[in-house]
């Protein structure tokens, strides 16, 4: 920990990493809360694995074909948005079982990614950072991209929060009342996909679902409203990412894994603590009422 703080003020890469964590936390809290209440975790998983396809293809174009502007981040964004649109169209128009479609998208995205990565020289290091993230490698331009996506996510969420709430809670009734349920559902999927891309920079695509859902799931243990859960979840996400970076820095542990372990640990602790607190509370009530009964006698 102390080594982290010592280096933090001297090394730009650590400052970038912390900044990336802060930016990612905003999208994570805001969109993660929706993913949790709407039970869209599996959907986010499918999108995350499509990101590998985008990253792999972009890397291949960049390294082998010489298309220099095609960064893995750009490829990831493109693939995630396309995956969101495909899932949306197929589930709305295709009358297919949603989980089947998701599994297909999940596997095809992953397969495409692996093929491209294998065809690209020096693939193993790339693959590792795509799968497990490497926030310490984030550069200034990546930071700019993350900030841009973050701005899009937050702006869209602010403008359409009410619609997203209606279509999540009472989709059938909303449709009857004239709300464009399909349009807003697609928009929410696109926001999820953009958030997945941002979070992939922090923890990699294998663990992205955990970072998307654990802070929100923890927040819902305290929050009674969606918007308050969003704020708490964003705060928790800041805690987990910065804590993860700081804790892993000295002993040279993998950052992404540390972040997730921290988030998972806090989540389980909160669940356990809540259960214990409830039991104590219950006991206090029964004690009080039995005392009152004794006094009456």
């Amino acid at each position: 920990m102390s080594l982290f703080w010592e280096h933090f003020f001297n090394h730009a890469f650590l400052q970038y990493a912390i900044l990336a964590g802060l930016l990612a936390s905003v999208a994570c809290g805001v969109v993660g809360s929706f993913v949790v209440v709407r039970r869209m975790t599996y959907l986010a998983g499918a999108i995350a694995h499509c990101v590998l396809g985008g990253m792999g293809a972009a890397r291949y174009l960049q390294r082998v074909q010489g298309v220099t502007w095609m960064t893995p981040f750009l490829g990831a964004t493109f693939a995630a948005v396309v995956a969101a649109l495909i899932i949306s169209v197929v589930t709305f128009k295709g009358r297919q079982r949603e989980d089947t479609v998701l599994s297909a998208v999940w596997a095809i995205g992953m397969a495409t990614g692996i093929s491209f990565i294998t065809a690209t020289p020096g693939y193993s290091e790339d693959l590792m950072s795509y799968l497990f993230g490497n926030i310490l490698m984030v550069g200034a331009s990546d930071l700019l991209h993350i900030a841009m996506l973050d701005a899009v996510v937050v702006a869209l969420m602010f403008l359409f929060y009410d619609k997203f709430l209606v279509i999540s809670f009472l989709p059938e009734l909303a449709r009857l009342r004239g709300v464009r349920v399909d349009v807003y559902h697609t928009a929410l999927l696109v926001l999820t996909s953009l958030t997945v891309v941002i979070l992939t920079q922090v923890v990699g695509l294998v663990m992205v679902i955990a970072l998307l859902t654990l802070p929100a799931a923890t927040a819902f243990q305290f929050a009674g409203r969606l918007w308050s859960a969003m704020i708490i979840a964003a705060g928790l996400c800041v805690l987990f990412t910065i804590g993860g970076i700081a804790l892993s820095y000295g002993p040279e542990l993998p950052v992404g894994a540390t972040v997730i372990q921290l988030a998972g640990g806090v989540y389980l602790l909160v669940l356990f603590g809540k259960k214990v607190w409830r039991r104590l509370h219950q006991r206090a009530i029964t004690n009080r009422s039995s005392n009152a009964a004794e006094q009456k006698i």
Partner: peptide, 14 residues
Amino acid sequence: FPVSALDVVLMGRA
């Protein structure tokens, strides 16, 4: 789903 009664009423004006 974390919504209040007022939230649900407001949905009528979405």
